[in-house]
Each structure stands twice: as structure tokens, then as C-alpha cells.
């Protein structure tokens, strides 16, 4: 949640990050992607078996 007193600043910054994101390629194959690196990072390491967030 965005603190109300920073709503205007948040809107301004959101515009900036949206412009950055709009430059990313979008023409990906319409298929299930392989494992996502973010998922690997948030569910722990295969090496250690550590489960941090899963």
C-alpha cells in the first residue's frame, strides 16, 4: 500500500518505471516458460535444500 502522503510522488515514479518496462520485448512464444529464476530464488536452493519462503 502506498502511504497517502506520497501518492503524488508514487504516481510520478510509476510513470518512469512504466516507460522503462515498455521498452522490454513482449513477443515471447505463447507457451509455458521454463523455470523462472525468481521462483528458484524464492523457494530455496537446490544445492542446500534450504527453504526460505516456500
Amino acid at each position: 500500500m502506498i502511504p497517502p502522503q506520497y501518492a503524488a510522488r508514487a504516481a510520478e515514479l510509476a510513470k518512469g518505471i512504466t516507460i522503462i518496462a515498455a521498452r522490454l520485448p513482449r513477443d515471447w512464444p505463447k507457451e509455458h516458460p521454463p523455470a523462472n529464476p525468481a521462483c528458484e530464488a524464492t523457494t530455496g536452493s537446490a544445492k542446500t535444500g534450504e527453504q526460505k519462503y516456500g
Binding site: A14, I17, L24
Partner: peptide, 28 residues
Amino acid sequence: LRDKLLAGMGVSAVDYLAAQRLRRAFTD
């Protein structure tokens, strides 16, 4: 720090996934 977090709150799920798809393809 506050500006970075406020900007992050403005990232849509679709944009986050677009970045992650680029990341996966780039890594491969």
C-alpha cells in the same frame, strides 16, 4: 530508498513478468 520503493509499487505484474521472461531468455 523511499523513491525506489514507491517506483516498485508502480510495477505491474505484467511488466514484472516481461522482465523475467527477458531474463530467462537472456540467461539461456
